[in-house]
């Protein structure tokens, strides 16, 4: 039952849909790339010397405050930040990301119970980072660390490694 009128009409409709679709896709692709892909980073992974080994005691965690340079968007910023250091043996340390793995609060070391305690929702971690109580879903995050010439270096750019 196609008359010249109905074929013309369906041609119009088909073209409208096709061209609108093409324009939408052409705009959506760069938009998705722009919004979803991570920007190119200009940072190399950085080992930072944060303290001397002589300042640590085995079994006694210390919160070390240090300066680090970081790229924040379009800016290089130097900022104060911290990490919890635990000397495990004579020549070995573990560095913890200072944010609770539950919701990111700053936890602290409670010397009397010898555990890390988070004040927000009551998560408790043992000295080796394991969850002993509370809602924390995983052990404390560790920073890669190493000891060189009596100094402790950490690499806080890759905080994903778990205890």
């Amino acid at each position: 039952m196609s008359t010249p009128q109905t074929t013309r009409r369906s041609f119009y409709l088909y073209t409208i849909n096709l061209l609108t679709g093409l324009v939408a896709v052409a705009a959506a692709i760069p938009t998705a790339v722009y919004l979803l892909l991570r920007p190119k980073s200009r940072d190399a992974t950085n080992w930072i010397e944060i303290t001397d080994l002589s300042r640590l005691r085995v079994g006694q965690p210390e919160e070390i405050v240090y300066n680090r340079k970081r790229t924040d968007g379009w800016r290089r910023v130097e900022e104060k930040t911290s990490a919890w250091l635990v000397q495990t043996r004579e020549n070995s340390v573990v560095a913890y990301n200072p944010a609770c793995t539950h919701l990111g609060c700053a936890y602290h070391w409670d010397a009397s119970s010898a555990e890390f305690e988070c004040p927000c929702h009551g998560s408790v971690f043992s000295i080796d980072g394991k969850v002993t109580a509370g809602p924390a879903p995983r052990p404390l995050d560790r920073y890669p660390s190493r000891i060189q010439g009596g100094a402790v270096f950490i690499n806080p750019e890759s905080p994903k490694e778990s205890a």
Partner: peptide
């Protein structure tokens, strides 16, 4: 505007960030 700092100086830094580092930033 999602990646832009509207202040003198920093505006240029952020635009350079858009066109050199953000994926598809130079296209947008």
């Amino acid at each position: 505007a999602l990646n832009y700092a509207p202040t003198p100086g920093e505006a240029w830094d952020s635009l350079r960030y858009i066109v050199t580092q953000v994926a598809a930033g130079s296209i947008i």
